[in-house]
Design a protein around this nucleic acid. Structure first.
Lengths: 208, 208, 208, 208
DNA sequence: TACTAAACGAGACGGTACGTCCAGTCTTTCA
DNA sequence: TGAAAGACTGGACGTACCGTCTCGTTTAGTA
């Protein structure tokens, strides 16, 4: 979260427990109050920590919430489910399940909104949240190639390009379905999405 | 915005110009300050209007911004470009152009974030912004069917179901591309997206 | 306290009751907490007023306390007690009685301390508190002259010079007695002080 | 300053230099910042000492400042100037010179203000500052008696009583002149004060 | 000489108050 | 009676100090 440099070894060291307590309290407050009514004073109180301590580690509400929400995405995994379609469906369902949690809904969109005017924040979101997910796309692609479901992608640039599109489509669709349309991204919907996506990509590979 | 009833016949009538000035001032403030630093006092001052007047017409920041942003989407049109692909590309590019404007970026995500905890707000967003766009999807679908590019969809339920998926995919992808990935939804990208989407839908129609 | 100019006549006027409530609350807090533990938040709460209202009228703790303490000195009077000595003893006892009240003790020295580094504050103290007392010295002198107890003072400069000395001696002695020596400025002590002072002044008039 | 008991014989002894550095730094900070903006952290930094060290020796700002200011009064002396009037004028001028220094002005009144609600602090002020001055009054009285300028005072109680009054008048007048009236306690003023005082005391001795 | 216990520097900690800002309401006068 | 002006309550903001606490590091006096 902060520098991993050895840094100062003098003075009282920062409490590691405080970090965890603060992030947990942040998520709790997000669930109960939502982003706009969440106050750092309240988070500090919930965490059993002084406001000072909180500000010593995070520069503001945005940064704190990004870190608190980012931890939710740690649980994303990509077990081998036997086929590309199954792999995709699995990970999209996981993603949808996270987005279904109120602490993610309330916080994620808000920090994205803030990030439109704050490049440092956008970078932090990308590093902490987005890239972590995008990695799964590339991993799934490679596994499909190994299975022979997709032709190997020799050009890494093109692969990245393709992954970007897939990622924007999948993540965007799930987010939009969940937060804007406010309808569940359930198994049926995910199956439909996956089918359209795979057929589209297969077709695009043929014709390009 | 409010009652369309003939309303009060006595006293000074509300200034119609004030409404427009306030919404314009809101967008101006969104551009300059962004959602989080926008204050209603400031908007009132910019509009040359008292705070009271503002509160008499909107119940708060969220509602005001929804209305101010919604007007941006009034310009969305669906001219006949000759083919389904061209129609889609055209409207997606329009949508992307709107999302590229700072007043939309800054405000839209923020109200969506707020709407996760406020059903009335979500409804207002849907009415003012989302449904206006979704109509275009249905319109385009009908036009394509008239052209013979797509089989007519006899079941209105299934049509709506399909339109929902398309809309979540398209709108979600553009939003994610623009705001999260922070890369331009330019012509090339839109062409790629459209191709994948059309091929996917065509394939899905076959296999379903 | 503030400008007596006609000024703005638009907008909601400031509550006159608030001023009185705040000053009263300030004295109450001075009694209970003393200067250093008095907080403006607490004063605002006691006065049933928002902090903003308080800051709109006073620029800080010092100014507020000066005004709150100054009101205590409004009760100083100089009734004709028949002789110069009696007049002096009377007013000194009144002054001592005010200084004996905890709200005066706690606040007065503190603002004097602050005023050593803040000329505007010193001026405010002089205007609100000191000059109000000094006027009594001149008044008493004039009355004594009218009675024939003292020769008329033809030179106003010399009169002012003399009054300054008297005032510093009397006020300083009472303050020192009360706050530093922490012993009561009771009737006996005041009689002793008055005798020394009058004899000294009479002698000085002879020899100068 | 603290216990003179032999106390602990083991462990690292306290640095004597630190005490001096802290008091000096305190006076320096008083000059630059004044009482209210003086912080113990800043004093510690100026003294090249950790905050802990400071708190190990003084219990708070008040106590520290009393000690820092008290040292200023160490220089008060009462050389024999040949006459009672000259002795008094000499010591009053010395006292006025000390009060003219910003570190004394800023700190002294503030701790006196605090002492109105803190008996231990008042006692500390008396011991460290006031009594040291009062001793001079008694010393001067004795010397005057030896010279034959004043009758010997057989009753020590009456002597103390008289000294108290003198002390309150002189110290109070100088303080008031300097800090409240904000005018210099210069030679002329001190001569006037002394004359009034001596004539008054002489007259009082006659008539009592 | 090595041991030991206190003092030391650094700085994180829980608290508390600061003075500012904004939301949303209320109370004036003007048109 | 609507609108403009601006004072009002209430509450969060982010900062600054307070006085305490934990660290790892000296440093004088034994033993």
């Amino acid at each position: 979260m902060q520098s991993s440099t050895p840094a100062a070894r003098t003075g009282r060291p920062r409490s590691a427990a405080a970090d965890a307590a603060i992030l947990e309290a942040t998520r709790e407050a997000l669930v109960e109050l939502g982003w706009s009514k969440l106050t750092l004073s309240d988070v500090a109180t919930r965490a059993g920590v002084a406001k000072t301590t909180l500000y010593r580690r995070w520069s503001g509400k945005n940064e704190l919430v990004v870190d608190a929400v980012a931890e939710l995405f740690d649980e994303l995994e990509l077990p081998d489910r036997g086929s590309l379609a199954a792999d995709i469906e699995g990970v999209v369902l996981q993603f949808a399940a996270i987005l279904d949690r109120p602490e993610a809904q309330s916080g994620l969109m808000a920090v994205v909104a803030e990030s439109t005017r704050d490049d440092a924040l956008r970078e932090r979101i990308r590093t902490s949240i987005v890239d972590r997910q995008k990695r799964l796309v590339l991993e799934g692609r490679a596994r499909a190639a190994a299975r022979g479901e997709l032709p190997p992608e020799p050009d890494p640039d093109a692969a990245s390009h393709e992954a970007d599109l897939i990622f924007d489509v999948v993540a965007g669709a799930v987010v939009h379905r969940t937060l804007v349309s406010a309808r569940p991204a359930d198994e049926e919907w995910v199956r439909d999405l996956t089918r359209v996506l795979l057929l589209g990509l297969a077709g695009a590979a043929h014709t390009s």
